[in-house]
Simulated scan of single mutants.
Amino acid sequence: MTERKKLTTGQVAERFGVNRYTVQKWADEGKLPCTRTLGGDRRFDAAEIEKRLALS
């Protein structure tokens, strides 16, 4: 199984041009799918983020 590239909240915020708290809100509302690390940090699938950026 290959590991897909994951992005941090800050990296996603930079790509969308928004504050990282906005990305956290989107994730909490289910607008952006994410996984959590053992420490509780959000991680976003890079391919999914790029796909959503292309649609906007």
Rank of each mutant, 00 (worst) to 15 (best):
Q11W: 02
G10A: 15
D28Q: 15
G17P: 12
M1N: 10
R20T: 10
G40S: 07
A27M: 08
V18Y: 08
P33M: 06
R4P: 04
D45C: 14
G17D: 13
K6D: 06
K5Y: 05
R43I: 04
S56K: 01
T22H: 09
E50C: 11
R42A: 07
R15S: 08
K5M: 11
R20Q: 15
G39C: 06
G10N: 15
S56N: 04
A46P: 01
R36T: 14
E50P: 02
T9N: 02
Q24A: 15
F16A: 04
K25D: 10
R4V: 07
A13D: 11
A54G: 12
L53M: 12
N19L: 13
K5P: 01
K6M: 15
G30W: 06
A54Q: 08
K6I: 07
R15I: 09
L32P: 00
G17Q: 08
A47E: 13
D41R: 06
W26G: 04
L7K: 00
M1F: 13
S56Y: 07
D45A: 14
D41I: 03
R43F: 06
W26P: 00
E14H: 09
C34D: 00
T35F: 01
V23W: 01
M1P: 03
A27S: 14
K5T: 12
T8L: 05
Q11L: 09
E29M: 10
R36V: 14
A54M: 10
L53D: 04
G17M: 11
E3A: 10
W26Q: 06
L38C: 05
S56T: 04
T35N: 01
N19C: 15
